[in-house]
Design a protein around this nucleic acid. Structure first.
Lengths: 113, 113
DNA sequence: CGGGTAGATTGACGGCTGTCGATGTATCGA
DNA sequence: TCGATACATCGACAGCCGTCAATCTACCCG
């Protein structure tokens, strides 16, 4: 019930409304947006997101080496990005395959205008 | 000297290069980007930025009431946004007037593609 | 000058977060 | 069934961050 309403900026295709400069951000919208930006506020997560974005579909096991972090740390970061809606994962056999959610990135771009 | 080189994404008009999905983000670029996103990863700062963006030019003294925070906290947040290059301030008499840096927002949008 | 106001700075406190080792769970191959 | 692999979870630790009261600095006006 607490989250019946979610910022319109972050729903739908993400090409929505309420850009920063149009009108003062509502408190709830600001909280939601901040949650997503917080997911991007870490250099390791940004590189992880970039690796997945550039690769199209990437396995968790292929992230440890390029990022130079331990397996639990990689798992921690993929979860953070997934919780923010920026990544979706699909378990395929033994492997976890990750993809970016382009609509989510578009929603962020829309909010930053 | 430590910052001789700064991510091209965040310099120039900000309409630059190196979008996330094009190629894996360089370590230095990721660090710079993360610094800016960290500035946006707080609901109070997002509302502050939005207030300034919507108002065009806003005095610090006009931020305490709508944000519901103490004066030192407001000062802390304006400094954080200014350090991230998202806000510029001009001291005019007794008042500090703030404006957004649209190029910076554009640079972030460019990076998120 | 002197009083008042706007803002920055400092110090302190509580909470959040990135990191890793250790452990648990599921899946595949032999 | 057994060993190995991929991933998640837990617990712990260190460092960072948002917040405020108190204080300091700069500026205006009378």
């Amino acid at each position: 019930m607490a989250t019946k309403r979610i910022s319109a900026v972050l729903l739908d295709g993400g090409v929505c409304c309420a850009p920063l400069s149009a009108a003062p951000l509502a408190v709830a919208d600001a909280a939601e947006l901040a949650r997503v930006f917080a997911a991007l506020a870490d250099p390791v997560r940004l590189r992880l997101l970039s690796l997945v974005a550039a690769g199209g579909e990437v396995c968790s096991c292929d992230l440890e080496v390029p990022l130079g972090k331990s397996q639990p740390t990689i798992s921690h970061h993929t979860k953070a990005l997934a919780d923010a809606g920026l990544l979706v994962g699909e378990k395929r056999g033994r492997w976890m395959m990750w993809q970016v959610v382009p609509e989510r990135l578009a929603a962020l771009r829309a909010a930053l205008s």
